[in-house]
Computed example of a mutant assay.
Amino acid sequence: MDIEIGAEAKDKRFNRRVAITVVALSIFMGLCGVKDGNIVQAMQQAQSSGVDAWDQYQAARTKLHIDETARAQTRFLALSGDGRAAAPEAAEITRLDAEIAKYQAEAPALKSRAQGFQAQYDALNVHDDQFDAADALNSIAVSIAAVAALVEIPAALWASWAFGALGVVMGVAGFLGWSLHSAFLSRLLG
């Protein structure tokens, strides 16, 4: 009878470790999931703002091209026999010159703004990858812990802890904004 009680106590200790592992990793996965969702929303906003900025840049460049063409045509058509433009045409050329200068000044700022949104998206994507890796590693850890509980093999629980530790490191890196990034995992999961 003492042997049965000793075996039962050993099973309970092992199962408690498995249960604590599963609970701790599940809570951490939930927190990571919330943060990852917020990052994905920020990525979508940055991408949308970037598309809008690139559209504004392209519109400014298109208007610049149209005004440059209109200026050249107006100048060509307005030339009188003595090589000078008449007053209405000269006013139009002056107006087009002002528009051209405005678009030439505006385009670099719009381009820089669009590139800024792209950089913001890229930075957020690194952290999204970290949370994705944490989720994958922690899911593997929970699965191995479940198997460890069924087969009662301590090595399986240790493997679960190893995957869980890697998952926690990746999740903490995402929360703290560290630049820790696994290109291999990103390619594998991306």
Results as ranks from 00 to 15, higher is better:
Ala146Val: 14
Gly37Ser: 14
Val18Ala: 00
Ser26Ala: 15
Ile27Gly: 04
Glu92Leu: 14
Leu188His: 08
Ala90Arg: 10
Asn125Trp: 14
Met170Thr: 03
Asp82Gln: 06
Ala105Trp: 07
Tyr121Gln: 14
Pro154Ile: 05
Trp161Arg: 01
Ala9Pro: 01
Leu31His: 02
Phe184Cys: 05
Leu124Ile: 06
Ala85His: 07
Ile20Lys: 03
Gly83Lys: 07
Gly190Phe: 07
Val169Ser: 11
Gly164Ile: 00
Tyr121Ile: 02
Lys35Phe: 11
Trp158Glu: 10
Ser160Arg: 03
Ala105Tyr: 07
Gln56Asp: 12
Pro154Leu: 10
Gly190Ile: 02
Ala136Glu: 08
Ala98Ile: 04
Leu180Pro: 00
Ala87Asn: 08
Glu99Ala: 14
Gln58Thr: 10
Gly50Phe: 11
Ile5Asp: 08
Ala159Asn: 01
Leu166Gln: 08
Lys35Val: 12
Leu137Arg: 04
Ala136Trp: 13
Arg61Ser: 12
Ala141Lys: 08
Glu99Lys: 15
Ala90Gln: 15
Ala173Leu: 08
Val34Leu: 14
Ala24Met: 04
Ser139Arg: 11
Ala87Ser: 11
Ser48Val: 03
Leu25Gln: 01
Leu79Thr: 11
Gly174Phe: 04
Asp52Gly: 12
Leu166Val: 06
Leu137Ile: 07
Asn125Gly: 09
Ala19Tyr: 05
Tyr57Ile: 03
Ala155Trp: 09
Thr94Phe: 07
Leu124Phe: 12
Glu89Gly: 04
Ser186His: 14
Arg13Ser: 12
Glu8Cys: 07
Asp52Asn: 13
Gln47Thr: 08
Pro108Trp: 03
Gly83Pro: 02
Phe184Val: 09
Arg84Cys: 03
Asp122Phe: 02
Gln44His: 11
Ala87Gly: 06
Gln118His: 12
Ala98Arg: 11
Asn125His: 15
Leu166Met: 14
Arg17Val: 01
Asp129Trp: 03
Phe163Lys: 05
